[in-house]
Simulated assay, not measured.
Amino acid sequence: MKSNLISVITRITIFVLVMSFASCKVLKQNESTDITSNSNNPLMVFLNCSISHDSIGQEYKMDLIDKIITEGRVKQTTVNSKTYEQDNFRYCLLNKNYQIISFSYMPNPLDKTIEYVDENGLLGKRSIRLDSTQFSLRIPLATGSEFVSFEKDNKQLLLVDLNK
């Protein structure tokens, strides 16, 4: 009876150890951020950032809150454009040598349009400029993308390393 109990405990211990090693291996594979993309499984990055504008010094400050790289495609109906418009920000995908792979423009996240109902009951719109805000951006990753750079008036505001 005693040897049977020891045999069962030994089997359970071995089973638990094998499962622990197997789950560690799976976790290790999921933790690595491999941003190589192929046509079957395109990748995209979600960037959550904060931005502020110093109205006295006329300088922008941008910080990365977090990033998520995942498989998927960005819908083609985005507001981002390849055409520059006044007050837009440019973001660029860069390779490991900091050379531009692709770029696009996004509207200034500090500019907001507020809809309201006036005293006559009519719907109106008003544009305002915020001092600071948070925003999210989805970007499809091109092969060889290592960094994302945000620029305003040819001045780099933020450089995001996609491998960290």
Rank of each mutant, 00 (worst) to 15 (best):
F147N: 11
C24K: 14
N95S: 13
Q29V: 05
D63W: 14
V117I: 10
S145N: 03
I6P: 06
N41L: 12
D118S: 10
H53R: 03
S50C: 12
E119M: 08
R138F: 13
F103L: 07
I114E: 12
K125T: 07
T113N: 07
P109C: 01
G124H: 04
N95G: 04
T133R: 14
V74M: 02
D131L: 02
Y98K: 00
L141F: 04
V26K: 07
Y60I: 09
S145L: 01
Q134R: 12
R129L: 10
L27W: 15
Q29I: 03
L122D: 03
R11A: 13
K25H: 11
K152C: 13
Q156C: 07
N4F: 15
G121D: 03
S149I: 01
V26L: 06
M62H: 00
V45K: 02
D66Q: 11
I101V: 00
S39D: 11
R138S: 10
P109F: 06
S37K: 14
S20D: 09
N163H: 15
S52Q: 14
F147T: 00
S127W: 02
L123G: 09
V117Q: 10
R90M: 03
K112P: 04
Q76E: 09
V18F: 11
V148L: 01
R126F: 02
E85N: 08
L159P: 04
S7P: 02
K164E: 13
N41E: 04
V45L: 09
D87H: 05
P140Q: 15
S132Q: 14
L27E: 05
L5S: 11
K61L: 08
L158P: 07
S50I: 12
S50N: 12
L94H: 02
S39M: 08
E71K: 10
E59F: 05
N88R: 03
E85T: 05
I69K: 00
N40Q: 12
L130R: 14
S50H: 08
S55K: 15
